[in-house]
């Protein structure tokens, strides 16, 4: 419930703030979105598995985002679409985490 409120608050905040970012950095921003999404769903999964650690959660979020940004930067410098690596890694984890969350949810419901 609270995460959903947070998401809506974030969207509202983004609409209100209207942060100006040059189109050049839209790739970085996309990767950051993916990292944030991955972290959010990973956190949801961890909470469902009852092994959520907020320190681990936040450090994971920031380190993932920074590493992804660095990979994009490196790819830009080398002329390789290295950001695809980050996209694939985050994408795979997203689907895995989503699948696990789904499973946990149904198992919980089943237990009730």
């Amino acid at each position: 419930m609270l995460p959903l409120i947070g998401l809506l608050a974030g969207i509202a905040l983004g609409l209100v703030l209207n942060i100006p970012i040059p189109p050049v950095y839209s790739k970085y921003l996309g990767i950051a979105v993916l990292a944030a999404l991955d972290s959010a769903i990973g956190g949801l999964r961890a909470s469902l598995e009852m092994k959520f650690n907020d320190k681990l959660f936040f450090t994971g979020f920031f380190s993932n985002t920074l590493l992804a940004a660095f990979i994009v930067f490196l790819g830009d410098r080398l002329g390789i679409d290295l950001y695809l690596a980050a996209v694939v890694a985050f994408g795979v984890r997203l689907f895995q985490n989503l699948a696990l969350v789904r499973r946990h949810y149904f198992q919980k419901r089943h237990w009730e």
């Binding site: 419930m1 609270l2 995460p3 959903l4 409120i5 947070g6 998401l7 809506l8 608050a9 974030g10 969207i11 509202a12 905040l13 983004g14 609409l15 703030l17 942060i19 970012i21 921003l29 950051a32 979105v33 944030a36 999404l37 972290s39 959010a40 956190g43 949801l44 961890a46 909470s47 959520f52 907020d54 959660f57 936040f58 979020f61």
Partner: peptide, 18 residues
């Protein structure tokens, strides 16, 4: 847990909109 995830989802919302 909820607050932590909410914080990240809020950030996620800002990022998505931007």
């Amino acid at each position: 847990t909820q607050i932590a995830i909410a914080a990240v989802t809020m950030l996620l919302g800002i990022l998505i909109v931007t």
